[in-house]
């Protein structure tokens, strides 16, 4: 479970202070698929960094899986990210000229998983992300955009995290491939019970989630069940 309580974030540039979040509070239950939506400059990236344990709030509390992570040091945050969070980025961020399997195994290296256990875990995650078995040994620069994002999703899954945090995962993809990726998230949520938080500025994309948290100018302006959820049907 994720609980954010009255989180504020202030950035200082010289003498100028800028409050990106004015005391935001919300909860995400285990197994939920939530979209955090807002235009650029709304504070959603700041919120994403805090939820993703990449940054700490200036004030307020953040409980991830029952643990307060709002006052941790950089090195402790790294531990939290390694154990509890799987990231999917807009620009994929795969290691260039490296095989699909090695890319997916990367988080396992830092988690200290023994060598011989890594490959089966990576294969399982790739299959769960809907990645084609025949491409496991391909290099990352030999893949299409949709395949790359599935590798990135598998990498986020491989450590069995509490939360999958996807930051504009379809931003660099065409609508059709974007659909496939969003379908993958829906399936992971429904069939594997994964908790997923999707950050996006596009209402079209947010509508694939069960719930939409709308943020503007550092405040949550609405938080409701998706009115008309879009569903991607598995293709034959």
């Amino acid at each position: 479970m994720i609980e954010i309580k009255n989180v504020k974030k202030v950035y200082k540039t010289g003498n100028v202070e800028f409050e990106a979040l004015h005391g935001v509070s919300f909860k995400v239950e285990d197994g939920e698929f939530v979209a955090i939506m807002g235009p650029s400059g709304s504070g959603k990236s700041t919120l994403m960094h805090i939820i993703g344990a990449l940054d700490t709030p200036t004030s307020g509390q953040y409980f991830l899986d029952g643990k307060d992570v709002s006052k941790l040091t950089d090195e402790e945050l790294a531990d939290i990210r390694r154990q509890k969070i799987g990231f999917v980025f807009q620009s994929f961020n795969l290691l260039p000229r490296t095989t699909v399997l090695r890319n997916v195994m990367l988080p396992l290296i830092y988690a200290g998983i023994p060598h011989e256990q890594r490959r089966p875990l990576a294969e399982k995650a790739l299959l769960a992300a809907g990645f084609d078995e025949t491409h496991f040994e391909h290099k990352s620069n030999e893949l299409s955009g949709g395949q790359i994002q599935r590798v990135a999703i598998a990498r986020a899954l491989v450590n069995d995290p509490v939360l999958i945090l996807a930051d504009e995962p379809t931003g660099n993809l065409d609508t059709k491939t974007g659909d496939i990726v969003l379908g993958t998230f829906q399936r992971l949520n429904k069939e594997h019970g994964r908790t997923i938080i999707l950050i996006t500025h596009e209402p079209d994309v947010a509508e694939y989630a069960d719930r939409i948290v709308f943020i503007r100018d550092g405040d949550i302006v609405s938080d409701s069940k998706t009115h008309k959820k879009k569903i991607v049907h598995p293709q034959k």
Binding site: D74, D79, R81, R82, N93, L95, L106, Y110, N159
Partner: peptide, 16 residues
């Protein structure tokens, strides 16, 4: 730089 950022995001410590 991006690769380092990714490694850190997935839990690499400074020492790593």
């Amino acid at each position: 730089t991006k690769e380092i950022g990714l490694r850190k995001a997935i839990g690499a410590k400074k020492k790593d």
